[in-house]
Each structure stands twice: as structure tokens, then as C-alpha cells.
Design a protein around this nucleic acid. Structure first.
Lengths: 250, 250
DNA sequence: GATCGCGCTTGACGTGGGTCAAGGCGGCAA
DNA sequence: TTGCCGCCTTGACCCACGTCAAGCGCGATC
């Protein structure tokens, strides 16, 4: 109930029968026939409650999942139990691409709020992408985009200080929310300080301290999970030009 | 001339006319006709000298490149000049996948020794992959593998200490060399301490110190770029179970 | 409304690795 | 041979972040 702002953007009209997928992550120039084929493959959406696993590392890989509504994290774990958040995923974003290589999911996907996903059975998508060139091209693009995203995270983890990481993180969230029709400078964090820290390679205390520091400087306002970017320009100056955080997905 | 050991593995017979590609990164069950189609698309290999750029970030993306012989690094740079090595690439490995998303190369690829690459014009590969299902599948797998690799690097950068990073790095090199028929525990580094540091999120002094420390402990021997893994088991213990460094590509 | 507990904040302190600086070593040129 | 230069090593010092610990605030529960 803490989550008063929901990710069901009024600006995104979900016109097709079962899924916002086509608008969100597959904006292709498909003809009606191709659309119908695609619709036939995409399974009805599946609902998850906060905390539910969508899939787990090591499970056999059958499908990709597109977030329809809600918010997810993906995590990888090492044998000795260390865990790292590898990404946060909001509506329209795809999860599970890492499972293709070994036919096994390589990470856990966990809902951070009540969520809904579309299931894309991979084998059928693969077949379909043979018949629909623009779909094939789109998949290559999506996977490549994920690689670019990961490279930017590597740059962040390898080169940036705590303050810069937090700033880049906030700006990235802001930009992705804005592109979905939400306020860019006033939002609710879906994840805990610990999860932010895990993603950014920091401890939760450092996340907390750094948010406080940014607030003291007047760049942002922090009220628990409610964040306001008061001077986004200053944040951008912090990370310029690291990983051009405002344009690249993260 | 410092590079006395060369990466032209005797164990990999380059039987096809122009490229070791099929053996190395496209080990598919293709019939002779499909093989011929593939051969027609793969351009003659291109030679580069140590220090040459294969492509640069921002250049328009036309082709993927497979390392035939030699050794490369890829780097991403931020606007303010910070640079990070995102990977090292040896024979059989593919570079340029990140360029697909925006039709622009997203990183620089630089030869660390005299090298030879095969060029794979992407548009033609894309078309071909529509006609040859196993080729399409293989491309999806390759891209997914790159995503898994990047996630493991994220885990390394986010969670591991200097000693663990170096150990993971050495073990990863060792494993990749071994799979190409080279000695697993005795090899020459192609890259400088600074490049290793950039990849691992460390400064060159820390790389140097850490190598010395591992040597003092008797796990490895270091003679400039000549590395011997004396007790690889101890190194594995260091990184267990982070990112199961011995099995995953990095 | 009282209690509990989780997630967050903040302080004090410790330390791993960054920074700065001084050589060492081997390769290369003349 | 000599000297230069790039890369590496090593030491001394410092600081950003991690660690440990105390306490707060809000929501959930009854």
C-alpha cells in the first residue's frame, strides 16, 4: 500500500487484446496478418505479487517475459552466496535474454510490486522471426541494446564514485519513467536501499548517506522512497560525461 | 617482438578457404549448400598491426568481426574521457555485437598484437540467418552468451576484492587458452597492467601489487608478462564461488 | 492505541585500494 | 656500449567507502 503511484501509464493505450507488448517493446511496422501471427504466439499475461519469482537461475529456459505492468529486479548469485542485482525492469522491458545461450535461466527475476508480464515462448518467437524479417531484426536490436546497457553498467561500476553512481542511477530511472509518460522529477522508488546498493556496487549505508548528501546540497529531495529531482542539471553535471546516463538504458 | 607465443593454435585446423570462423564461432550442423552460402558472405580476412583500431565508437555499424588470430581489447569511453576496457578477445570470438542496436559501433576495438579478423557483413548474415534456422539460433545464442559474460563482469566489479578479481581474471584467461589448445598454466599476457586494471576496475599499481602478493603466496609465478599458475586450485578457492569464473566466458 | 519489526539514517571507526613518488628493468636506437 | 623510454614495482600516505553499532520512524497487527 506504500506504492501509491502505479505503473499503468495513461499515455500508453493497450489496444490489443492481451498485451501491451506491441506498443512497448515491439514497435514494428507489421501488417495485420503478421500482427495476428504475433498475437497467436504471445501468451496471456501472467500476474505476480510483490516478492514472487518470475523465474529462477538454473530453471530451464522456455520463454522471454515482457513487463506489462509493475516492476522487477533481476539478480545473479555466486556459488558462495554473494548476490548482485543486475537490473531493474519496468513496463515494456524484456527479461530472460541471458537464458537463450544455455537454455537455462542465468538469473532470478523477482517482482518488486504486484506485476503483470506477457510470456513470449522463445521457440515460437524464433520461428516467427524467420517469417517476419522486421521481427528478427527487432530481436537482434533488443539483445544488442541489452549488451550496450551492460557495458554502461560496467563503466559505472569500474570508474565512478558513489555520488556519481547514485546520480546516474536516479537520472536513468527518471529518464525511463519520463519516456513512459510519468513525471521525470518526482517518483517513488520501487526498490530498497540495499537493492540499489547491490546494483551499484555499494553498501546500503553508503546509498543512504549519499542520498542525504545530495539532499543537503539541494540537488534532490528524499522522503523515504519518494524522490524528487530538484536540480537534475546538477546531477547530470556530476556524471558528465560518464556513460551518458540520460540517453542510455540502464 | 616481446610476443613470442602466438595465437595460431596447431590444434585448430583451418580447413576452409578463408577463415577459421566455422570451426570457431559457428560450429553448426550445416549442409554443404549452406556452407557455401556462408562462405560467400564471409569476407576475406583483414590484417591489423598491434595498436590498430578495427573500429571506433560512433562509426557506422556494418559488420561483425571474428578474431581469426591475434588478440583484441574493446573499450568504452565516457564524454569526460574516462575509459574502460570492456573485454579482451581472442581467436574465435566475436566483436561488434553492441553496434547492432543503434547501427553505430558502441566501443573501440584495438589489436593488442598483430592480428587477423574475418568480417561478417551484418545485413547479409541477417538475411542468411532467415534461410538457415540453425544459423539464426546460433546468433541468438552468441548474443545471449555475451549478455551472460557481461553479467559476470558486473558481479566481479560489484562484489569482489582486488585479489579475487585478479584470480578470476587469470583463471578465465587460462580456461580460454586451454580450450584453444594452449597451455592452461603458462602463458603470456597480451595486455598491460593498466589495461588489466581498467577491465577489472583497479589501478595499475593495485594490479601489480596483487600479482606480487599472489606470487609471494606461491599461487602463481610472474615474470613481466609471463604468467604461470602454480596452484590454480588455490586461485579457484579465492573466487569460489564468484561467477564460476572457470566455466563462464569473460 | 500499543507493540513489534523492518527498513532506513547516522555516527564512529577501520581498511582496502587509490594517489603520489621514487626507482628498477628490459628493449631499442644510435 | 650507452642512454633513453615505457612499463612495471614498491613504498608511504590518505581517503572513500565498508563495518559495526545505536536508534528512529512508519506501517502492520491486534
Amino acid at each position: 500500500m506504500a506504492d501509491t503511484i502505479h505503473f499503468s501509464p495513461a499515455s500508453l493505450k493497450v489496444s490489443c487484446s492481451n498485451c501491451s507488448l506491441r506498443e512497448l517493446c515491439l514497435p514494428l511496422g507489421l501488417n495485420p496478418d503478421e500482427m495476428a501471427q504475433l498475437d497467436a504466439v504471445i501468451r496471456q499475461s501472467r500476474k505476480l505479487k510483490r516478492g514472487d519469482h518470475l523465474f529462477r537461475s538454473g530453471e530451464s529456459f522456455k520463454s522471454l517475459f515482457a513487463v506489462r505492468t509493475g516492476f522487477f529486479k533481476t539478480t545473479v548469485a555466486s556459488q558462495d552466496g554473494r548476490e548482485q542485482v543486475t537490473g531493474f525492469h519496468m513496463s515494456g522491458e524484456l527479461m530472460g535474454l541471458d537464458g537463450i545461450s544455455a537454455n537455462l535461466h542465468g538469473c532470478d527475476a523477482i517482482a518488486l510490486e504486484d506485476s503483470e508480464v506477457c510470456e513470449l515462448p522463445f521457440t515460437r518467437m524464433e520461428e516467427l522471426s524467420r517469417d517476419i524479417p522486421s521481427l528478427q531484426r527487432h530481436f537482434y536490436r533488443l539483445m544488442s541494446r541489452e549488451i550496450v546497457r551492460d557495458q554502461n553498467v560496467m563503466l559505472l561500476l569500474g570508474n565512478m564514485k558513489a555520488e556519481e553512481r547514485i546520480a546516474a542511477f536516479l537520472l536513468n530511472l527518471s529518464q525511463r519513467l519520463a519516456s513512459r509518460g510519468f513525471a521525470a522529477n518526482d517518483f517513488i522508488l520501487r526498490m530498497s536501499r540495499e537493492e540499489i546498493g547491490s546494483f551499484l556496487g555499494l553498501k546500503l549505508e553508503t546509498v543512504s548517506r549519499t542520498l542525504s548528501k545530495l539532499q543537503q546540497q539541494g540537488w534532490i529531495k528524499v522522503d523515504h522512497k519518494h524522490i524528487q529531482l530538484v536540480q537534475p542539471g546538477e546531477l547530470k553535471a556530476l556524471v558528465t560525461g560518464c556513460a551518458n546516463a540520460n540517453t542510455n538504458p540502464m
